[in-house]
Computed example of a mutant assay.
Amino acid sequence: MSDPHCLVSDCPASAARDAPVALCTWHLAASVDWAASAEGVTDLLPSPCIVCGSRLGVRWPSGWLCAVCEWRHGDPVDHELPPPRVDVVYYLRYEDRIKIGTTAHPRRRLAAIWHDEVLAFEPGDRLVERRRHAQFAGERLGRSEWFHRSAALDIHVAAVAAGVDDPWARYARWTSEALARRG
């Protein structure tokens, strides 16, 4: 028995017997390329991410992922459980000073502190915060959590930020990862 002909009109080639669709090798490859062109594409989510509120998502064959926190679109969050605790060390700039502090609730905490810019978040708790205070003790303003800007402090903050333009996106991802680990 001979192989069936390719279903594409005017194609003289034969389709492979084990092909899922009666297409020749060339048309199968063209179909795969076309289908793959929609994978990994950033676009608007069907609805905002329930974890971080972002509207941007990445489309994959298995479904949408939030482009910010990578939560799988459509996966429920168990609202009976408390939100996961994600401790961060934050770096805030106000004029020529930088505050190094820590919190498990950055939106609430930072809303209470006068600042010009959120520079970076670093995963960590009071222990990491104390290490940073000791590391930059020479720049510390009295006994506060505020520090004079210096080349060393600027370099450290840039390394912590690691090219991330929006620290809140990084925090949203950490929260999403903590939710995913929890199940």
Rank of each mutant, 00 (worst) to 15 (best):
M1Y: 14
S2E: 10
H5D: 09
V8E: 09
V8Q: 09
V8F: 02
D10T: 10
C11E: 11
C11K: 02
C11F: 04
A13I: 05
A15K: 09
A16D: 13
R17F: 14
D18E: 10
A19H: 13
V21D: 04
L23D: 05
W26Q: 14
H27K: 11
L28Y: 06
A30F: 14
V32T: 10
W34Q: 03
A35Y: 09
A36H: 08
G40D: 11
V41S: 00
T42G: 01
D43C: 10
D43M: 07
D43R: 05
L44F: 04
L45S: 02
P46F: 02
S47A: 14
G53Q: 04
G53S: 08
R55L: 09
R55I: 02
L56R: 13
G57E: 03
V58H: 06
W60E: 11
S62V: 15
G63W: 08
W64M: 00
W64C: 04
L65W: 03
W71C: 07
W71V: 06
R72I: 02
R72W: 01
H73I: 02
H73T: 05
G74Q: 08
P76V: 09
V77L: 15
V77S: 03
H79S: 05
E80W: 09
P83R: 12
R85C: 11
R85V: 12
V86H: 10
V86S: 00
D87P: 11
D87W: 07
V88K: 08
V89S: 05
Y90F: 07
Y91P: 05
L92Q: 00
L92Y: 08
Y94C: 14
D96A: 09
R97L: 07
I98S: 04
G101N: 07
G101D: 08
H105T: 15
P106K: 03
R107S: 14
R108Q: 09
R108G: 09
R109C: 04
R109E: 13
W114F: 13
W114N: 13
H115T: 13
H115A: 08
D116H: 09
E117R: 15
V118M: 03
L119D: 03
F121S: 01
E122T: 01
D125I: 03
R126V: 10
E129T: 01
R131N: 14
R131V: 08
F136R: 06
A137T: 01
G138F: 00
E139V: 06
E139L: 03
R143H: 13
R149I: 00
S150I: 05
A151E: 04
A151P: 06
A152V: 01
D154E: 13
D154F: 02
V157D: 00
A158M: 02
A158Y: 00
A161E: 11
A162S: 05
V164W: 01
D165T: 14
D165M: 08
D166M: 06
P167D: 02
P167Y: 07
W168D: 12
W168C: 10
R170K: 11
R170S: 08
Y171S: 09
Y171H: 08
Y171V: 10
W174D: 07
A178N: 07
L179V: 15
L179N: 12
L179E: 13
L179G: 01
R181K: 15
G183N: 00
